[in-house]
Design a protein around this nucleic acid. Structure first.
Length: 257
DNA sequence: ATGCCGCCAGAGTGGCGA
């Protein structure tokens, strides 16, 4: 079973590319981030035509997450994270589907740092950690998939120096990420590719794609029962190189049945 | 040092977020 995470950077602008990717790769579950649409604008019928059920948590203009499932309807468990009732960003959606608990995550970027956006990022990570701990206690196979906006290690970025002051690789961001892992989550790609060099994002600017100036910020975290079933990981890198592509590439894990 | 892109308001372009 393949579970993919894909920051699509606008579902309206990306729809042909997204449908093409679904048809070509047929993931069992696809977690989408940055759909950038209100709930009314979500093109559920387009996914239905391809045999995908969906749930979504939209927002006007930016953010927004969705979970698609092949030949199944995800059963929503939670939307949003507890801890800040005034936080209206649509960044978290959780469902049961295909015998798994799946969370779709769009973690705050946090730039510029230092500043209120960075503080929000760190608070959001602690709120996520609390929810993740509750999921661990349920002991169902679980995957936390999304755009974490965290570069976990120095070998997950094309240039440490170029990104040194970025919120994505500040020590505080990395420490918060490591705390989640230390609770019992396995970073699937980090674990199967300890040497690094796997990118999931290439900026639109500065010819980053052509120069292969990328980094790894899209992660799939597995609880122990899911990690026991991990058989492969991958990045659908060729989709990043197509016309009108997202700046992220689809990133996935394969779990044994 | 800079290079892009999607979305919004509101009808040009500029602002925001990334």
């Amino acid at each position: 079973m393949r579970i993919a995470s894909y920051n699509i950077n606008g579902i309206k602008a990306r729809l042909p590319r997204l449908l093409e990717w679904l048809e070509e790769t047929r993931p069992h579950v696809a977690c989408l981030q940055e759909i950038k649409t209100q709930d009314e604008g979500f093109p559920a019928s387009e996914f239905e035509k391809l045999g995908y059920g969906a749930i979504w948590h939209g927002q006007k203009g930016f953010n927004g997450v969705a979970i698609l499932a092949r030949d199944a309807q995800p059963v929503e468990v939670q939307r949003g994270l507890e801890g800040e009732p005034e936080d209206e960003h649509s960044r978290y959606l959780e469902a049961d589907v295909h015998g798994l608990r799946v969370a779709c995550i769009y973690l705050p970027n946090g730039n510029p740092q230092p500043g209120p956006k960075f503080d929000y990022k760190l608070r959001w990570m602690e709120r996520l950690r609390k929810r993740a701990a509750q999921i661990l206690a349920e002991e169902v196979p679980a995957v936390l998939a999304g755009d974490y906006n965290v570069i976990p290690r120095d070998n997950d970025v094309y240039s440490v120096r170029a990104m040194a002051s970025d919120a994505l690789m500040q020590p505080e961001s990395r420490a918060a990420y490591r705390r989640i892992l230390a609770d019992g989550w396995t970073d699937a790609i980090g674990t199967l590719r300890p040497g690094g060099g796997v990118w999931t994002y290439w900026d639109y600017q500065a010819g980053a794609w052509q120069r292969d100036h990328g980094f790894r910020i899209d992660h799939l975290l597995l609880n122990p029962s899911a990690a026991d079933r991990l058989s492969a990981i991958g990045v659908d890198k060729d989709h990043r190189g197509r016309e009108k592509a997202s700046d992220h590439a689809p990133t996935w894990v394969e779990l044994r049945d």
